[in-house]
Write a protein that binds this DNA or RNA. Structure first.
Length: 112
DNA sequence: CCCCTGACTATTC
DNA sequence: TGAATAGCCAGGG
């Protein structure tokens, strides 16, 4: 379990600047297929010192997981837009911004 | 063991 | 697009 969190944080760190990934996508890359919800949970427990771009993780349809207008959603939107990611109505166009990991990027996430 | 709660998803209409 | 619906799975009571 805690080992899983480590893998998840590490995988999220592999998302490139200006790109986004879905919870399920991160779960798959972290070797935890079917555990998208666990990814969300892990992101809620990121250690303070560790820098993890949690805001680059969205739902499978491109929506921000937090309710539109909430403080979290607003913060996430701001951080994404700083990186050039366009956010409209609490949602991002996956076709334009979803991360498509190359083979070596995927292999990298396999490191323990 | 049962029940409930999520930073979730795929499917269907 | 949006909304309802069924699964899903780790954690905690």
């Amino acid at each position: 379990m805690k080992q899983h969190y480590q893998r998840i944080w590490q995988t999220v760190q592999a998302i490139p600047y200006g790109k986004i990934a879905s919870y399920g996508q991160i779960a798959d890359l972290a070797g935890l297929p079917g555990r998208a919800r666990l990814v969300g949970k892990a992101l809620g427990f990121v250690p303070e010192q560790m820098v993890v771009p949690w805001y680059r993780v969205l739902r499978s349809n491109g929506q921000i997981a937090f309710p539109s207008g909430s403080a979290h959603s607003t913060l996430q939107t701001g951080l994404l837009q700083e990186e050039g990611v366009v956010v409209l109505n609490n949602r991002v166009k996956l076709r334009d911004f979803q991360w498509q990991p190359s083979l070596d990027e995927m292999l990298f996430t396999l490191q323990y």
